[in-house]
Every structure is written in C-alpha cells, then in structure tokens.
Design a protein around this nucleic acid. Structure first.
Lengths: 230, 230
DNA sequence: TGGGATTTGTTCGTATGTATT
DNA sequence: GAATACATACGAACAAATCCC
C-alpha cells in the first residue's frame, strides 16, 4: 500500500535534489539514456521525470534536442524574482492573523532544522530554507498558490546558484524567525515588508561581490526592486 | 519548415477546445486507447496530450486510474477564481500606462472578433473572450504570469460550464471595451476596480438563477468576493 | 557538404495495478 | 472475497532527427 514505488517520482525527486544542491550545474545535458542507466530504469520513465522537471521550469526541454538543466537568462531571472515577490506577498496577506499555534510551531521546527543543517555544514540547509517558504504557502490554503510557489522557489534556488556565489543561503535563520513573529501577528503590511526585505537580502547576499560573464548582470537582477518599490 | 505537424499538440488543442466548449463534460473519462483511436495516433501521443491538459488543470490524471475531464469541487472553484482575481490585478498593475497604441489596437480587434462571433451565434465567442484576457497578460511581459493566466482562464471556463447556465459569457463586450479604455489611462486602481467588477459580473451572470446539486453552491462561489473586498 | 555516430521520437507488446461483478 | 475485465505503467525495438567529425 504505502509501498508505492513509482519509479518516475523517485527519479524526478533525485534529479530535482541534485539540481537544487548544485550537483548538476545549469546547462548540463541530461540524456535520457544516461539517466535511465544511472537509475536502472527504462528511457520511458527517465523521459517522464524530465518532463516533470521541465514543468517545474528547472529543466529545459527542446524538441529533438534533448534535456538540459535550465540556464535562465537574466531576463528570466528577473521575471522569476519579480513574480515570486508578488506571489509571496499575496500568500502573506492570506496567512497573517490566521495561523494557529500549531502552525507557528511547525514553522519554528522548520527553521530549527535549517539552523542545525547550517551549523553542521550540510548542503541541505538550502532545502530546508526552501521548505520554510513552502510551509507558509501550504498554510495559505490555496493549492494553486502552493503549486506556483513550489516552482518559483525551485527556480530561485537554481538562479542563485547560477548567478550567485557558492554560499548564498547564509543566515536566513534570523530573518525567518522574524517573519514567523510577524506572521503570528495581525499587521499584514508589516509582514509583507519583512518578506520583501528578506527576499531582498537573500538576493543581495547571493550576488554581492559576484562578477557574471556579462559584467553588469548583478545590477540587472537587483533592478527588480527598483521597479517594485512602493 | 512551418509544416510542423506535431501530433501531440494537435490532439492537445483539439481536446482542449472540446473541453472548453463543453463538448466533453466534466467527469468524462478519457482513456488513452479511445483518444488514440479517435485521432489516429498512438497511445504515447495521446498520453502526452493528456499530460499537457493536466498541467492546464482541466484534466484530472490519477496514477493507474487514468484521465478524466476535471470536475473541480466548489472549494477548488473558489480557489481558482480567487487566485485569478489576484493575478489579474497584478497584471493590470503592470500594463496600465505602458501600453502602446498598437497594443490597444490589438485589444480592440480582439473585442471586435468576440462581438462578431457573439452576434453570429457562434460558440467560439467563449474562446475570444478568453483570448482578450490572455492578450493583456502577454502585454505584461512576464512569461510566468502569462502561463499562470492561461491555465486560470481555461479552468475558469471549465468551472463556469460546470456550475453555471448554458449561456454564461453573454455581453462581456461592453465591459471589455471599458477595460481597454482604463488600461490605456494611468490610473492603476481604477483599472483594477474595473477588472474586479468585470470578473465579478461574469461570475454573477453565469450563476444567477442556477441551482446546483448542493443547492447552496452558488453563494459559496460568490463568497469569494466577500472575503476579498477591500 | 556528407556520412556515421548518437540521441530523441514513436510504436506496440507485455506486466501490473484498479475496478467490478 | 475471488475472478474477470479493463486501463495504465513499463520496456525493448525501430524510425527519424540532430550532432560531429
């Protein structure tokens, strides 16, 4: 019963993790045969897993030319962060003042896990940091927003890995705790402001001191915030 | 070159139209074999078409149990309209004051087409009405928002067909023209208000005088607006 | 430009899982 | 509750497209 294998999902999740933890860098080709061989499955399931990753927008899938880890342009990176900011604001608006004590406990537990991973130097603190945002989205009670945010968070991580320095992610913990406190309160605008500041800080930390190929790519991504400033 | 067949896409679009024009009612099972036979393709391409429709959320695809035309619950219907409202507001905020004369012409042409179809009694005025909203989304310049809205518009149509009366869609034309005028102006809040009023009116027209199985389903959908009132 | 190697696209037979009587 | 009918999941082989020398 719970012995659901579903090889497709297994392959999908493994590849997803590999991409988000940057074991597979953007641009890496993902031939169906190689994946099928690696995981001991047929090309059919490898292909379906790739399609699912493409739906998440972390894999590029071009007809007759195969799959590769997505390598978003700066334009696409901008779009991702801009849209993510908007969606997170809407989610925040929905949860502020409506969280139960239990909800808040879950959020705190998530941050605790993130902090532990971070201290232990594990790479999966990235996953925990992402999970924090996804938890909030779950609490908004909208399956659609949850789906959107899942994809946006994955894509954000990919982009930060692509354009940012190795150890972006440092020290979300304090900001996350602050956010929890605000989400437990009743002031929507304040919580939104904190969310904005947090996402802004993540991006800034990831990008500061980085020189991309284009040379002036960083400010191009940061320009997102100039546009959206209220 | 432009002779791209791509049978998958053909099947996908045909099914999509059939669903949106209510030739295929919600709940209808869609076995791979039947579709493959009907369109003269293999099960593989039938399956891929179904997966694409599932991504649009107008087909339900349950593991080992096959595909069926989606039959959203009232809860899901609420979510769809609520999210759509939010997304359309964001899109409006992005386009107001930034449309070129050419953009406005395209919007007007779309409404003209809708009006013609409507006068001629053709069923595809539904498609034109949907296209109007999608055009606006295109002009927002965000691939992600465009993708979201595409799916939301399809799903909205499905839901209105499911819970509403046969001829919902009547008389969008005037409201659409009003919207164009506001989008060409500079007042974001006003344009958003018109968008809200328009979507509200569509829902009201579709649902008025309708009795669902549940009996009180209508007010449940309309409660969306009570929540979101500003 | 061309041809061979490699990879994707497609088909369809079989295995496995689900629903029904 | 078991057997049967049915639909999907999977995989191996073939066809077509692309890439690379």
């Amino acid at each position: 019963m719970s012995e659901r294998k579903n090889r497709t999902i297994v392959v999908y999740q493994a590849l997803r993790r590999a991409i988000l933890e940057q074991a597979l860098r953007p641009g890496t080709k993902l031939p169906e045969d190689a994946i099928a061989g690696q995981f001991g499955v047929s090309r059919t399931v490898a292909r379906r897993a790739l399609e699912m990753l493409a739906a998440d927008e972390i894999v590029d899938l071009r007809p007759n030319r195969g799959a590769a880890v997505a390598k978003p342009t700066l334009e696409e990176a901008r779009d991702t962060f801009q849209v993510r900011m908007d969606i997170e604001h809407l989610i925040v608006a929905r949860v502020v003042g409506k969280l139960t004590r239990k909800d808040l406990k879950r959020l705190e537990a998530s941050v605790d896990a993130e902090e532990r991973s971070h201290h232990e130097g594990k790479e999966d603190y990235i996953r925990h940091a992402a999970e924090f945002h996804i938890l909030i989205a779950e609490m908004a009670g909208s399956p659609l927003f949850l789906r959107y945010l899942r994809s946006l968070v994955s894509r954000s991580a990919l982009i930060l890995g692509l354009y940012g320095r190795p150890h972006w992610g440092d020290c979300n913990v304090h900001e996350h705790r602050e956010l929890i406190e605000a989400l437990g309160g009743k002031n929507v605008a304040r919580a939104q402001k904190l969310m904005r500041a947090h996402l802004d800080a993540v991006l800034t930390r990831a990008l500061e001191g980085v020189h991309t190929d284009a040379g002036k790519g960083i400010s191009d991504i940061l320009a997102v915030y100039a546009d959206a400033a209220d």
